[in-house]
Design a protein around this nucleic acid. Structure first.
Lengths: 204, 204
DNA sequence: ACTCTTATTGACCGGTCGGCCAGTTAATTG
DNA sequence: CAATTAACTGGCCGACCGGTCAATAAGAGT
């Protein structure tokens, strides 16, 4: 089917370059990584990277795009696969998002680099994710399952922030007193978050 | 008292250099800023920076230390100035922290750079802040003001994450649909957070 | 076999990097 | 007022940067 070990394989070379670039850029940032390092890590020459990608900036965008693309697709699939809104759904959604970040630390870092660089080019796609999530919250509000005196988008923002920054600041709070592991934090956050969203008797 | 406009003032030069370094490093990161840029921004020569600080790395540490120092002192003062625990106190604490970050975007960015670089050298001091905050939460739990089935440190973590990442990810969620301004988000977060911390009848 | 395309190399370019240092000049000291 | 100290300058260094390019060679098409 596919020819065995071709000495020349543009697609494989591109993939190795992108993979090396992702690893290095995400670990240390765009400015701190040189084309020579990436070339060495991908076992190609620097000239070849320029042949395939044109410039350092373009390589970074290709590497970033690759990661964001997978992120958006997987998140969107999760969101759309979820059944109709019920109280358990929100809990499961938070857990799924938390687990996703837990298993994809490169996305946590990529988002952080993106925020620091002020890249707002991605807002269209993750805005779409928030819109989908907020829509689920709105359904749950309409069904009387969660309080309706908060903006759905803010509900989504709250747990996104609480989850993302947990992993982003891990190197710090690993050393904080009485802070537990991932599971312990998630459990406590869910208690506060879900009970905080219960419909208030004085509202509605 | 102090001589007027001295043509040579080591302290003033150091201060100008540190200020320029803070501004540039926080805006664009350590690796992307050159000593020449800092020298130009501080209106001194590159040689003088090396004379006063030794190396680029040492300058970054001095600049960072300066910012963290002020942050810790002001936060600690706020925490210790707060009266004994009551329900209003937690609300005020969150609002104060939120406002602080709102008015000090450079600290949000500095923390983010620090997390990405894996600098865990600061954990001792901000761990102390979390310890103080958690102690207040513990007092409120003992007084029956908030639920006692969550770890105090996790309560502090939750609002730190929810506030910090709100400002960190601002460039993204500025464009998200139905996301409000700072005040609207804070209001909704406080509703969820404070009601989620109400003592549960089935507990205690 | 021949051509054509293109993946791939390695040397090279101008420019910038952080750091160094000899020399100059302004304050301080005795 | 001389001597000393320290702030400050400007030029230089070797290393490394991103990018270019001519040469090479492997596969594909004919």
């Amino acid at each position: 089917m596919n020819e065995p070990t071709p000495t020349r394989d543009a697609e494989a070379s591109r993939a190795r370059i992108v993979a090396a670039a992702q690893r290095l850029f995400v670990a240390r940032g765009f400015a701190d990584v040189s084309m020579r390092e990436i070339a060495a890590a991908a076992s190609v020459t620097k000239g070849l990277i320029h042949h395939h990608f044109g410039s350092k900036q373009a390589l970074w965008e290709a590497a970033r795009e690759h990661l964001f693309q997978r992120y958006f697709e997987e998140q969107k699939a999760e969101l759309e696969a979820a059944p109709v809104a019920d109280r358990k759904l929100l809990r499961d959604g938070v857990i799924k998002y938390f687990r996703y970040l837990q298993q994809h630390p490169e996305m946590v870092r990529l988002l952080a680099w993106s925020h620091l660089a002020g890249d707002d080019g991605e807002y269209r796609r993750d805005g779409e994710l928030v819109r989908l999530g907020a829509e689920r919250v709105r359904q749950a509000q309409a069904a009387g399952l969660i309080r309706d005196d908060v903006r759905p988008a803010h509900v989504v923002c709250t747990f996104i922030h609480a989850c993302t920054h947990w992993f982003e600041a891990r190197s710090h709070h690993r050393h904080w007193p009485d802070v537990g592991d991932d599971q312990a934090y998630l459990d406590d956050f869910l208690k506060i978050f879900l009970d905080g969203l219960r419909p208030r008797p004085e509202n509605t």
